[in-house]
Amino acid sequence: MKKFEVTGNKDTRSGFGDGLTELGRTNPNVVALCADLTGSLKMGDFKNEFPDRFFQVGIAEANMMGMAAGMTIGGKIPFTGTFANFSTGRVYDQIRQSIAYSEKNVKICASHAGLTLGEDGATHQILEDVGMMQMLPNMTVINPCDYNQTKAATIAIAEHEGPVYLRFGRPKMPIFTPADQKFEIGKGIMLNEGTDVTIIATGHLVWEAILAGEKLAEQGINAEIINIHTIKPLDEEMVIASAKKTGAVVTAEEHQTIGGLGATVSQCLAKNHAVPMDFVAVDDSFGESGTPAQLMTKYGLDADNIIAKVKRVMAKKVMA
């Protein structure tokens, strides 16, 4: 198993904030909108450095999405910032009609996604956002895994023409991807080549997949680990090739099983190369209050559960 060096510990939302500030310096068309959560979204630096390109809309997310759509007419590239729940479910039809259907170049940037939001509880812990967003035609859906990748993704989506949903989170997480990475939308990253099973993970679960891979290696199981940061469009080529090689796949994500990365990967494999699969995800339930670590354990979004699922799919593998 390849070794991953941890170079720091930061929240992915700070990667977004720092990427946005850098974009402010390099791309004069980038503008930012926020709905009374500037600090939480780490948009303060952009706001201070580019006050003319920062738009505080108040607690009015529907208006923010409509305004963002409008700002693209004439060439601006709007980045909206609020919590993931208020970036998606709250404003679904505004996104659907004014942004996705109208093919507007809006970047919907969503923090505090998933259970790791912690104590605020289920009203804020959206676990359905990836599903909602990837169901929309024209929408690109990205869930980076650490600070560096989130920063790189933020910068990359400004170059991509079309609506993007960029999802990140609140807690500090190990940084293990390179600072100078080039972010390629739609391209999976092969973290570790293996032969026995494939673990495909996104967002905060990528680190758990690495921890699981290390423990599996100690038990003689050679796991292939793929970081899928772009859920839509999915890197089908990489997913299919890996499934052909290992013959069993486990997906891992901080989201509902229904509509998430696992659902998308399983559709891809059902069509192209069906193998035994299992899913590390939240099983049709809302979240609740607790510390991020307690919640990830309680809902099985951790390395231990990835290992358990790996054992299950490996037992089902059809031996040639």
């Binding site: 607690i59 729940n85 208020f86 709250r90 104590e119 605020d120 509880g121 289920a122 009203t123 804020h124 809302f286 609740e288 209050s289 607790g290 510390t291 307690q294 919640l295 309680k298």
Partner: peptide
């Protein structure tokens, strides 16, 4: 309050049957 498995969720919720609460709130408006 706000601890795992509590009825006193970070924002009011009905799921655990806390007496006095009739609908969840937290998402404003």
């Amino acid at each position: 309050f706000r601890k795992i498995n509590t009825r006193l969720q970070g924002h009011p919720a009905t799921e655990e049957g806390l007496e006095g609460i009739r609908v969840a709130s937290g998402s404003l408006g």
